[in-house]
Design a protein around this nucleic acid. Structure first.
Lengths: 251, 251
DNA sequence: GGAAAAAGTTGATCTAGGTCAAGAAACGCG
DNA sequence: CGCGTTTCTTGACCTAGATCAACTTTTTCC
Protein backbone atom coordinates (compact mmCIF):
# COMPACT_ATOMS: atom_id res chain seq x y z
CA UNK A 1 0.00 0.00 0.00
CA UNK A 2 2.32 2.70 -1.23
CA UNK A 3 -0.46 5.27 -1.26
CA UNK A 4 -0.69 5.36 2.51
CA UNK A 5 1.50 8.19 3.76
CA UNK A 6 3.12 8.53 7.16
CA UNK A 7 0.96 11.54 7.97
CA UNK A 8 -2.20 9.59 7.26
CA UNK A 9 -0.90 6.89 9.55
CA UNK A 10 -0.32 9.28 12.40
CA UNK A 11 -3.82 10.61 12.07
CA UNK A 12 -5.27 7.14 11.91
CA UNK A 13 -3.42 5.71 14.82
CA UNK A 14 -3.23 8.86 16.86
CA UNK A 15 -0.70 9.83 19.46
CA UNK A 16 0.25 6.97 21.74
CA UNK A 17 -1.74 7.44 24.92
CA UNK A 18 -0.42 6.86 28.40
CA UNK A 19 -1.84 3.39 28.78
CA UNK A 20 -0.25 2.22 25.56
CA UNK A 21 3.06 3.57 26.71
CA UNK A 22 2.73 2.04 30.17
CA UNK A 23 2.38 -1.43 28.73
CA UNK A 24 5.46 -0.85 26.60
CA UNK A 25 7.51 0.78 29.31
CA UNK A 26 8.97 -2.41 30.73
CA UNK A 27 10.29 -3.57 27.38
CA UNK A 28 11.69 -0.22 26.45
CA UNK A 29 13.13 0.42 29.88
CA UNK A 30 15.11 -2.78 29.68
CA UNK A 31 16.82 -1.81 26.43
CA UNK A 32 20.56 -1.33 26.75
CA UNK A 33 20.25 2.35 25.94
CA UNK A 34 17.94 3.06 28.85
CA UNK A 35 18.96 0.35 31.29
CA UNK A 36 21.11 2.30 33.71
CA UNK A 37 19.50 5.71 33.52
CA UNK A 38 17.69 7.72 36.15
CA UNK A 39 13.92 7.10 36.47
CA UNK A 40 13.15 10.80 36.29
CA UNK A 41 15.12 11.15 33.07
CA UNK A 42 13.49 8.10 31.57
CA UNK A 43 10.07 9.52 32.35
CA UNK A 44 11.15 12.82 30.88
CA UNK A 45 11.99 10.99 27.64
CA UNK A 46 8.76 9.01 27.61
CA UNK A 47 6.55 12.02 28.19
CA UNK A 48 7.27 13.30 24.72
CA UNK A 49 7.24 9.88 23.11
CA UNK A 50 4.84 8.51 20.51
CA UNK A 51 4.06 4.85 20.04
CA UNK A 52 2.68 3.75 16.73
CA UNK A 53 1.78 0.66 14.77
CA UNK A 54 2.67 0.67 11.13
CA UNK A 55 1.52 -1.65 8.35
CA UNK A 56 4.13 -3.43 6.22
CA UNK A 57 6.04 -1.51 3.55
CA UNK A 58 5.48 1.94 5.00
CA UNK A 59 8.28 4.38 4.45
CA UNK A 60 9.01 5.73 7.92
CA UNK A 61 11.96 7.86 7.02
CA UNK A 62 13.23 9.39 3.81
CA UNK A 63 16.93 10.04 3.44
CA UNK A 64 17.74 13.72 3.45
CA UNK A 65 14.91 14.64 5.81
CA UNK A 66 15.74 16.33 9.12
CA UNK A 67 16.00 13.86 11.99
CA UNK A 68 13.17 14.81 14.29
CA UNK A 69 12.83 11.49 16.10
CA UNK A 70 14.93 8.70 17.45
CA UNK A 71 13.12 5.52 16.45
CA UNK A 72 12.93 2.41 18.57
CA UNK A 73 11.60 -0.76 17.06
CA UNK A 74 9.50 -2.68 19.59
CA UNK A 75 8.17 -5.39 17.30
CA UNK A 76 8.23 -6.22 13.60
CA UNK A 77 11.17 -5.41 11.36
CA UNK A 78 12.51 -2.42 9.50
CA UNK A 79 14.75 -2.13 6.48
CA UNK A 80 17.25 0.68 6.18
CA UNK A 81 18.03 1.43 2.56
CA UNK A 82 19.58 4.08 0.38
CA UNK A 83 19.16 5.28 -3.15
CA UNK A 84 21.21 7.15 -5.69
CA UNK A 85 20.62 7.87 -9.32
CA UNK A 86 17.68 5.48 -9.56
CA UNK A 87 19.51 2.62 -7.85
CA UNK A 88 18.63 1.26 -4.43
CA UNK A 89 20.47 -0.85 -1.89
CA UNK A 90 19.63 -2.38 1.46
CA UNK A 91 21.96 -1.01 4.12
CA UNK A 92 20.75 -3.11 7.04
CA UNK A 93 17.74 -4.70 8.66
CA UNK A 94 16.62 -3.71 12.15
CA UNK A 95 15.15 -6.26 14.56
CA UNK A 96 13.51 -5.66 17.94
CA UNK A 97 14.35 -4.31 20.23
CA UNK A 98 16.73 -1.70 19.02
CA UNK A 99 16.96 1.91 18.07
CA UNK A 100 17.77 3.23 14.65
CA UNK A 101 19.18 6.41 13.13
CA UNK A 102 20.85 7.31 16.40
CA UNK A 103 23.70 9.15 14.69
CA UNK A 104 21.42 11.57 12.84
CA UNK A 105 19.61 12.32 16.11
CA UNK A 106 22.82 12.96 17.98
CA UNK A 107 24.26 15.25 15.31
CA UNK A 108 20.94 16.87 14.47
CA UNK A 109 21.80 16.16 10.85
CA UNK A 110 19.67 14.85 7.98
CA UNK A 111 19.05 11.10 7.70
CA UNK A 112 21.53 9.31 5.46
CA UNK A 113 19.25 6.31 5.00
CA UNK A 114 15.58 5.74 4.40
CA UNK A 115 13.60 3.29 6.48
CA UNK A 116 10.57 1.17 5.69
CA UNK A 117 8.68 -1.42 7.67
CA UNK A 118 8.97 -4.95 6.33
CA UNK A 119 6.16 -6.33 8.46
CA UNK A 120 3.54 -4.83 10.73
CA UNK A 121 5.74 -3.00 13.22
CA UNK A 122 5.42 -1.21 16.51
CA UNK A 123 7.69 1.76 16.88
CA UNK A 124 8.44 4.27 19.62
CA UNK A 125 9.35 7.75 18.48
CA UNK A 126 11.41 9.92 20.82
CA UNK A 127 11.79 13.57 19.85
CA UNK A 128 15.46 14.05 18.97
CA UNK A 129 15.71 17.25 20.98
CA UNK A 130 14.58 15.39 24.12
CA UNK A 131 17.20 12.73 23.53
CA UNK A 132 19.94 15.32 23.22
CA UNK A 133 18.68 17.13 26.30
CA UNK A 134 18.60 14.05 28.50
CA UNK A 135 21.97 13.01 27.13
CA UNK A 136 23.47 16.14 28.63
CA UNK A 137 21.94 15.62 32.04
CA UNK A 138 22.27 11.86 32.51
CA UNK A 139 25.85 10.49 32.34
CA UNK A 140 24.60 6.94 32.40
CA UNK A 141 22.41 7.55 29.37
CA UNK A 142 25.31 9.32 27.70
CA UNK A 143 27.52 6.29 28.32
CA UNK A 144 24.87 4.01 26.84
CA UNK A 145 24.35 6.18 23.77
CA UNK A 146 28.06 6.34 23.08
CA UNK A 147 28.33 2.60 23.49
CA UNK A 148 25.43 1.97 21.12
CA UNK A 149 26.86 4.40 18.62
CA UNK A 150 30.29 2.76 18.79
CA UNK A 151 28.59 -0.59 18.25
CA UNK A 152 26.81 0.76 15.16
CA UNK A 153 30.04 2.21 13.84
CA UNK A 154 31.83 -1.07 14.25
CA UNK A 155 29.03 -2.92 12.49
CA UNK A 156 29.33 -0.69 9.44
CA UNK A 157 33.10 -1.06 9.41
CA UNK A 158 32.71 -4.85 9.49
CA UNK A 159 30.23 -4.62 6.66
CA UNK A 160 32.69 -2.57 4.61
CA UNK A 161 35.39 -5.17 5.18
CA UNK A 162 32.95 -7.88 4.13
CA UNK A 163 32.13 -5.96 0.94
CA UNK A 164 35.66 -5.02 -0.05
CA UNK A 165 37.58 -8.12 0.95
CA UNK A 166 35.22 -10.92 -0.07
CA UNK A 167 33.57 -12.21 -3.22
CA UNK A 168 29.79 -12.52 -3.26
CA UNK A 169 29.90 -16.28 -2.64
CA UNK A 170 32.21 -15.75 0.33
CA UNK A 171 29.89 -13.10 1.70
CA UNK A 172 26.93 -15.45 1.40
CA UNK A 173 28.81 -18.32 3.05
CA UNK A 174 29.76 -16.12 5.98
CA UNK A 175 26.27 -14.69 6.23
CA UNK A 176 24.90 -18.21 6.54
CA UNK A 177 27.39 -19.00 9.30
CA UNK A 178 26.46 -15.83 11.17
CA UNK A 179 22.77 -16.56 10.79
CA UNK A 180 23.35 -20.09 12.02
CA UNK A 181 25.05 -18.86 15.21
CA UNK A 182 22.28 -16.34 15.83
CA UNK A 183 19.77 -19.14 15.48
CA UNK A 184 21.43 -21.34 18.06
CA UNK A 185 24.21 -22.95 16.07
CA UNK A 186 22.35 -26.08 14.94
CA UNK A 187 22.84 -27.58 11.48
CA UNK A 188 19.38 -26.43 10.41
CA UNK A 189 18.04 -22.90 10.62
CA UNK A 190 15.85 -20.35 8.93
CA UNK A 191 16.45 -17.27 6.84
CA UNK A 192 14.40 -14.45 8.30
CA UNK A 193 14.92 -12.26 5.26
CA UNK A 194 13.54 -12.49 1.76
CA UNK A 195 16.25 -13.67 -0.61
CA UNK A 196 16.05 -10.62 -2.82
CA UNK A 197 16.57 -8.37 0.21
CA UNK A 198 19.39 -10.54 1.40
CA UNK A 199 20.92 -10.27 -2.06
CA UNK A 200 20.75 -6.49 -1.89
CA UNK A 201 22.17 -6.44 1.63
CA UNK A 202 25.07 -8.61 0.52
CA UNK A 203 25.64 -6.44 -2.53
CA UNK A 204 24.47 -8.70 -5.34
CA UNK A 205 21.48 -9.30 -7.61
CA UNK A 206 18.75 -11.85 -6.80
CA UNK A 207 19.84 -13.92 -9.81
CA UNK A 208 23.38 -14.03 -8.60
CA UNK A 209 22.22 -14.97 -5.11
CA UNK A 210 20.46 -18.01 -6.57
CA UNK A 211 23.65 -19.04 -8.30
CA UNK A 212 25.74 -18.33 -5.20
CA UNK A 213 23.52 -20.68 -3.21
CA UNK A 214 24.02 -23.36 -5.84
CA UNK A 215 27.76 -22.90 -5.80
CA UNK A 216 27.80 -23.62 -2.05
CA UNK A 217 26.16 -27.01 -2.57
CA UNK A 218 29.53 -28.78 -2.90
CA UNK A 219 30.35 -27.47 0.58
CA UNK A 220 27.30 -29.12 2.04
CA UNK A 221 24.86 -26.22 2.02
CA UNK A 222 21.24 -26.99 1.19
CA UNK A 223 18.62 -24.27 0.86
CA UNK A 224 14.93 -24.94 0.25
CA UNK A 225 12.66 -21.97 0.63
CA UNK A 226 13.87 -20.20 3.74
CA UNK A 227 15.19 -23.39 5.35
CA UNK A 228 18.94 -23.85 5.38
CA UNK A 229 20.80 -27.00 6.30
CA UNK A 230 24.53 -27.21 6.73
CA UNK A 231 25.66 -30.78 6.31
CA UNK A 232 29.39 -30.33 6.67
CA UNK A 233 30.14 -27.50 9.10
CA UNK A 234 33.92 -27.82 8.84
CA UNK A 235 33.88 -27.88 5.08
CA UNK A 236 31.81 -24.71 4.87
CA UNK A 237 33.97 -22.96 7.47
CA UNK A 238 37.13 -23.92 5.63
CA UNK A 239 35.67 -22.22 2.59
CA UNK A 240 34.12 -19.20 4.33
CA UNK A 241 37.03 -18.49 6.68
CA UNK A 242 34.90 -16.49 9.12
CA UNK A 243 36.78 -13.93 11.18
CA UNK A 244 35.67 -12.42 14.50
CA UNK A 245 36.85 -9.04 13.16
CA UNK A 246 34.20 -9.20 10.44
CA UNK A 247 31.61 -11.72 11.50
CA UNK A 248 31.27 -11.48 15.25
CA UNK A 249 28.28 -9.20 15.69
CA UNK A 250 28.75 -8.73 19.42
CA UNK A 251 32.18 -7.13 19.69
CA UNK B 1 61.90 -0.03 7.26
CA UNK B 2 59.62 -2.90 8.17
CA UNK B 3 62.19 -4.27 10.62
CA UNK B 4 61.66 -1.40 13.04
CA UNK B 5 59.02 -2.42 15.55
CA UNK B 6 56.77 -0.18 17.59
CA UNK B 7 58.49 -1.26 20.79
CA UNK B 8 61.87 -0.27 19.44
CA UNK B 9 60.37 3.08 18.53
CA UNK B 10 59.10 3.68 21.99
CA UNK B 11 62.49 2.93 23.45
CA UNK B 12 64.20 5.18 20.94
CA UNK B 13 61.95 8.12 21.30
CA UNK B 14 61.11 7.69 24.92
CA UNK B 15 58.01 8.80 26.74
CA UNK B 16 56.91 12.26 25.73
CA UNK B 17 58.21 14.62 28.38
CA UNK B 18 56.33 17.56 29.77
CA UNK B 19 58.01 20.14 27.59
CA UNK B 20 57.16 18.20 24.44
CA UNK B 21 53.57 17.96 25.57
CA UNK B 22 53.39 21.64 26.51
CA UNK B 23 54.32 22.71 23.02
CA UNK B 24 51.65 20.41 21.62
CA UNK B 25 48.99 21.29 24.14
CA UNK B 26 47.59 24.26 22.27
CA UNK B 27 47.01 22.31 19.11
CA UNK B 28 45.52 19.35 20.87
CA UNK B 29 43.43 21.47 23.19
CA UNK B 30 41.79 23.16 20.23
CA UNK B 31 40.62 19.88 18.68
CA UNK B 32 36.86 19.51 18.58
CA UNK B 33 36.97 16.59 20.99
CA UNK B 34 38.65 18.61 23.73
CA UNK B 35 37.45 22.11 22.92
CA UNK B 36 34.73 22.57 25.52
CA UNK B 37 36.04 20.42 28.33
CA UNK B 38 37.17 21.34 31.80
CA UNK B 39 40.85 22.31 32.22
CA UNK B 40 41.32 19.89 35.09
CA UNK B 41 39.93 17.04 33.04
CA UNK B 42 42.08 17.93 30.08
CA UNK B 43 45.16 17.94 32.26
CA UNK B 44 44.08 14.63 33.74
CA UNK B 45 44.00 13.19 30.20
CA UNK B 46 47.35 14.69 29.24
CA UNK B 47 49.15 13.45 32.35
CA UNK B 48 48.97 9.90 31.06
CA UNK B 49 49.60 10.81 27.44
CA UNK B 50 52.53 9.88 25.27
CA UNK B 51 53.71 11.89 22.30
CA UNK B 52 55.78 10.15 19.67
CA UNK B 53 57.28 10.64 16.26
CA UNK B 54 57.07 7.73 13.89
CA UNK B 55 58.91 7.15 10.61
CA UNK B 56 56.87 6.39 7.47
CA UNK B 57 55.32 2.98 7.00
CA UNK B 58 55.32 1.95 10.64
CA UNK B 59 52.43 -0.25 11.68
CA UNK B 60 50.99 1.54 14.69
CA UNK B 61 48.06 -0.75 15.27
CA UNK B 62 47.26 -4.30 14.26
CA UNK B 63 43.64 -5.31 13.87
CA UNK B 64 42.54 -7.70 16.56
CA UNK B 65 44.79 -6.21 19.24
CA UNK B 66 43.22 -4.78 22.39
CA UNK B 67 42.66 -1.03 22.17
CA UNK B 68 44.93 0.40 24.83
CA UNK B 69 45.23 3.91 23.42
CA UNK B 70 43.18 6.53 21.70
CA UNK B 71 45.41 7.90 18.96
CA UNK B 72 45.50 11.51 17.88
CA UNK B 73 47.37 12.45 14.75
CA UNK B 74 49.13 15.80 15.19
CA UNK B 75 51.09 15.84 11.94
CA UNK B 76 51.79 13.49 9.05
CA UNK B 77 49.23 10.99 7.77
CA UNK B 78 48.00 7.57 8.72
CA UNK B 79 46.31 4.86 6.69
CA UNK B 80 43.66 2.65 8.23
CA UNK B 81 43.49 -0.71 6.48
CA UNK B 82 42.12 -4.18 6.93
CA UNK B 83 43.08 -7.62 5.79
CA UNK B 84 41.37 -10.96 5.32
CA UNK B 85 42.55 -14.16 3.78
CA UNK B 86 45.67 -12.59 2.31
CA UNK B 87 43.79 -9.62 0.82
CA UNK B 88 44.18 -6.05 2.00
CA UNK B 89 42.11 -2.92 1.56
CA UNK B 90 42.44 0.70 2.57
CA UNK B 91 39.57 1.71 4.82
CA UNK B 92 40.42 5.39 5.19
CA UNK B 93 43.21 7.89 5.49
CA UNK B 94 43.59 10.07 8.58
CA UNK B 95 44.83 13.65 8.32
CA UNK B 96 45.76 16.04 11.14
CA UNK B 97 44.41 16.90 13.46
CA UNK B 98 42.05 14.11 14.29
CA UNK B 99 41.68 11.09 16.46
CA UNK B 100 41.39 7.56 15.24
CA UNK B 101 40.02 4.25 16.52
CA UNK B 102 37.70 6.06 18.91
CA UNK B 103 35.05 3.33 18.77
CA UNK B 104 37.41 0.59 19.94
CA UNK B 105 38.52 2.81 22.83
CA UNK B 106 34.97 3.57 23.86
CA UNK B 107 33.85 -0.06 23.75
CA UNK B 108 37.13 -1.44 25.11
CA UNK B 109 36.99 -3.86 22.20
CA UNK B 110 39.72 -5.07 19.83
CA UNK B 111 40.71 -2.89 16.88
CA UNK B 112 38.84 -3.70 13.68
CA UNK B 113 41.40 -1.98 11.49
CA UNK B 114 45.17 -1.77 11.36
CA UNK B 115 46.96 1.56 11.10
CA UNK B 116 50.25 2.54 9.54
CA UNK B 117 51.99 5.86 9.08
CA UNK B 118 52.26 7.00 5.48
CA UNK B 119 54.73 9.76 6.21
CA UNK B 120 56.77 10.81 9.24
CA UNK B 121 54.01 11.40 11.76
CA UNK B 122 53.56 12.85 15.21
CA UNK B 123 51.01 11.08 17.31
CA UNK B 124 49.55 11.55 20.77
CA UNK B 125 48.54 8.40 22.61
CA UNK B 126 45.91 8.68 25.33
CA UNK B 127 45.40 5.58 27.49
CA UNK B 128 41.92 4.28 26.66
CA UNK B 129 41.02 3.80 30.31
CA UNK B 130 41.72 7.50 31.00
CA UNK B 131 39.50 8.49 28.10
CA UNK B 132 36.62 6.37 29.40
CA UNK B 133 37.15 7.74 32.92
CA UNK B 134 37.11 11.37 31.88
CA UNK B 135 34.14 10.67 29.62
CA UNK B 136 32.12 9.73 32.70
CA UNK B 137 33.04 12.84 34.65
CA UNK B 138 32.97 15.53 31.96
CA UNK B 139 29.60 15.96 30.17
CA UNK B 140 31.16 18.34 27.67
CA UNK B 141 33.79 15.81 26.69
CA UNK B 142 31.08 13.14 26.52
CA UNK B 143 29.09 15.34 24.15
CA UNK B 144 32.15 15.85 21.97
CA UNK B 145 33.03 12.16 21.88
CA UNK B 146 29.50 11.23 20.92
CA UNK B 147 29.49 13.85 18.21
CA UNK B 148 32.82 12.68 16.82
CA UNK B 149 31.65 9.08 16.90
CA UNK B 150 28.42 9.95 15.12
CA UNK B 151 30.47 11.78 12.51
CA UNK B 152 32.65 8.70 12.00
CA UNK B 153 29.60 6.48 11.72
CA UNK B 154 28.06 8.71 9.12
CA UNK B 155 31.28 8.75 7.12
CA UNK B 156 31.35 4.97 6.95
CA UNK B 157 27.69 4.86 5.96
CA UNK B 158 28.39 7.32 3.14
CA UNK B 159 31.31 5.20 2.06
CA UNK B 160 29.09 2.11 1.95
CA UNK B 161 26.58 3.96 -0.21
CA UNK B 162 29.40 5.06 -2.50
CA UNK B 163 30.61 1.45 -2.81
CA UNK B 164 27.25 -0.20 -3.31
CA UNK B 165 25.45 2.34 -5.46
CA UNK B 166 28.18 3.52 -7.81
CA UNK B 167 30.50 2.02 -10.39
CA UNK B 168 34.23 2.50 -9.99
CA UNK B 169 34.35 5.32 -12.54
CA UNK B 170 31.50 7.10 -10.75
CA UNK B 171 33.30 6.70 -7.45
CA UNK B 172 36.44 8.20 -8.91
CA UNK B 173 34.56 11.11 -10.48
CA UNK B 174 32.90 11.94 -7.17
CA UNK B 175 36.14 11.52 -5.28
CA UNK B 176 37.75 14.09 -7.56
CA UNK B 177 34.89 16.51 -6.97
CA UNK B 178 35.20 16.04 -3.19
CA UNK B 179 38.94 16.54 -3.32
CA UNK B 180 38.44 19.65 -5.42
CA UNK B 181 36.11 21.20 -2.84
CA UNK B 182 38.48 20.33 -0.01
CA UNK B 183 41.26 22.05 -1.96
CA UNK B 184 39.36 25.29 -2.38
CA UNK B 185 37.15 24.50 -5.35
CA UNK B 186 39.43 25.74 -8.12
CA UNK B 187 39.69 23.96 -11.47
CA UNK B 188 43.20 22.71 -10.58
CA UNK B 189 44.15 20.78 -7.48
CA UNK B 190 46.39 18.07 -6.13
CA UNK B 191 45.90 14.45 -5.12
CA UNK B 192 47.39 14.00 -1.68
CA UNK B 193 47.24 10.22 -1.92
CA UNK B 194 49.26 7.77 -3.96
CA UNK B 195 47.13 6.47 -6.80
CA UNK B 196 47.43 2.86 -5.74
CA UNK B 197 46.19 3.74 -2.25
CA UNK B 198 43.41 5.79 -3.72
CA UNK B 199 42.49 2.81 -5.88
CA UNK B 200 42.31 0.58 -2.83
CA UNK B 201 40.29 3.15 -0.91
CA UNK B 202 37.84 3.41 -3.81
CA UNK B 203 37.64 -0.37 -4.07
CA UNK B 204 39.47 -1.03 -7.32
CA UNK B 205 42.86 -2.14 -8.61
CA UNK B 206 45.60 0.33 -9.61
CA UNK B 207 45.28 -0.82 -13.22
CA UNK B 208 41.60 -0.11 -13.21
CA UNK B 209 42.19 3.28 -11.61
CA UNK B 210 44.45 4.21 -14.55
CA UNK B 211 41.73 3.22 -16.95
CA UNK B 212 39.06 5.00 -14.91
CA UNK B 213 41.07 8.21 -15.15
CA UNK B 214 41.31 7.79 -18.89
CA UNK B 215 37.59 7.21 -19.19
CA UNK B 216 36.94 10.57 -17.48
CA UNK B 217 38.94 12.42 -20.13
CA UNK B 218 35.86 12.98 -22.33
CA UNK B 219 34.30 14.79 -19.34
CA UNK B 220 37.18 17.23 -19.20
CA UNK B 221 39.33 15.61 -16.51
CA UNK B 222 43.08 15.75 -16.95
CA UNK B 223 45.47 14.03 -14.57
CA UNK B 224 49.24 14.29 -14.78
CA UNK B 225 51.15 12.91 -11.84
CA UNK B 226 49.24 14.13 -8.80
CA UNK B 227 47.94 17.25 -10.54
CA UNK B 228 44.30 17.24 -11.56
CA UNK B 229 42.58 19.76 -13.78
CA UNK B 230 38.88 19.90 -14.35
CA UNK B 231 38.17 21.71 -17.60
CA UNK B 232 34.41 21.39 -17.69
CA UNK B 233 32.98 21.43 -14.18
CA UNK B 234 29.36 21.10 -15.27
CA UNK B 235 30.08 18.22 -17.58
CA UNK B 236 31.86 16.26 -14.87
CA UNK B 237 29.13 16.99 -12.34
CA UNK B 238 26.45 15.89 -14.77
CA UNK B 239 28.27 12.59 -15.02
CA UNK B 240 29.21 12.19 -11.35
CA UNK B 241 25.87 13.31 -9.91
CA UNK B 242 27.33 14.14 -6.49
CA UNK B 243 24.89 13.96 -3.59
CA UNK B 244 25.25 15.68 -0.22
CA UNK B 245 24.05 12.43 1.36
CA UNK B 246 27.15 10.66 0.08
CA UNK B 247 29.71 13.28 -0.76
CA UNK B 248 29.35 16.07 1.77
CA UNK B 249 32.01 15.22 4.34
CA UNK B 250 30.83 17.78 6.88
CA UNK B 251 27.27 16.68 7.67
C1' DG C 1 -9.78 -22.35 -3.85
C1' DG C 2 -8.00 -20.21 -7.63
C1' DA C 3 -6.52 -16.18 -10.32
C1' DA C 4 -3.07 -12.60 -10.17
C1' DA C 5 1.10 -10.94 -8.52
C1' DA C 6 5.39 -11.39 -6.66
C1' DA C 7 9.52 -14.02 -5.65
C1' DG C 8 12.71 -17.23 -7.05
C1' DT C 9 15.28 -19.91 -10.53
C1' DT C 10 17.69 -20.99 -14.80
C1' DG C 11 19.99 -20.27 -19.10
C1' DA C 12 22.14 -17.17 -22.51
C1' DT C 13 24.66 -13.30 -23.03
C1' DC C 14 27.23 -9.19 -21.88
C1' DT C 15 30.33 -6.18 -19.36
C1' DA C 16 32.78 -4.07 -15.51
C1' DG C 17 36.53 -4.84 -13.57
C1' DG C 18 40.33 -8.18 -12.21
C1' DT C 19 44.69 -10.52 -13.54
C1' DC C 20 48.98 -11.02 -15.86
C1' DA C 21 52.85 -9.27 -18.20
C1' DA C 22 55.73 -5.84 -19.99
C1' DG C 23 57.31 -1.25 -20.53
C1' DA C 24 57.59 3.84 -18.93
C1' DA C 25 57.91 7.15 -15.50
C1' DA C 26 58.88 8.65 -10.93
C1' DC C 27 61.17 8.17 -6.69
C1' DG C 28 64.70 7.02 -3.14
C1' DC C 29 69.21 6.54 -1.92
C1' DG C 30 74.23 5.59 -1.85
C1' DC D 1 74.14 11.92 -10.27
C1' DG D 2 72.82 7.46 -11.65
C1' DC D 3 71.33 2.96 -10.34
C1' DG D 4 67.69 0.24 -8.35
C1' DT D 5 63.17 0.05 -6.70
C1' DT D 6 58.62 1.19 -6.79
C1' DT D 7 54.69 3.19 -8.97
C1' DC D 8 52.10 3.98 -12.93
C1' DT D 9 50.40 2.81 -17.40
C1' DT D 10 49.02 0.01 -21.29
C1' DG D 11 47.57 -4.04 -23.73
C1' DA D 12 45.77 -8.78 -23.88
C1' DC D 13 43.03 -11.73 -21.65
C1' DC D 14 39.87 -13.64 -18.24
C1' DT D 15 36.19 -14.01 -14.84
C1' DA D 16 32.81 -12.57 -11.41
C1' DG D 17 28.84 -10.91 -11.54
C1' DA D 18 25.12 -8.06 -14.06
C1' DT D 19 21.44 -8.05 -17.36
C1' DC D 20 17.71 -9.91 -20.01
C1' DA D 21 14.23 -13.12 -20.85
C1' DA D 22 11.63 -17.14 -20.01
C1' DC D 23 9.84 -20.11 -16.82
C1' DT D 24 8.51 -22.15 -12.04
C1' DT D 25 7.25 -21.67 -7.46
C1' DT D 26 5.31 -19.29 -3.76
C1' DT D 27 2.43 -15.82 -1.82
C1' DT D 28 -1.51 -12.78 -1.73
C1' DC D 29 -6.01 -11.79 -1.72
C1' DC D 30 -10.76 -11.83 -3.46
Amino acid sequence: MPGLSLDKCQLQLGRGNYTMLESENGRIRSLDVFAGMDDAHFDRLMRGAYVQNFPPMIELITEGDPSDFLHILVSGSVELFSTWNGRETTMSTVWPASSFILAATVKDAPYLMSARTLEKSRIVLLPSSDVREVFDSDPCFARAIVSELAQCYRSVVKNTKDLKLRTSVERLANYLLRQQRRDGGGPEFILHTEKRRLASALGMTPENMSRAIKSLKPYGVGVTGNKVSIKDQDDLERFAKPSPLIDDFRT
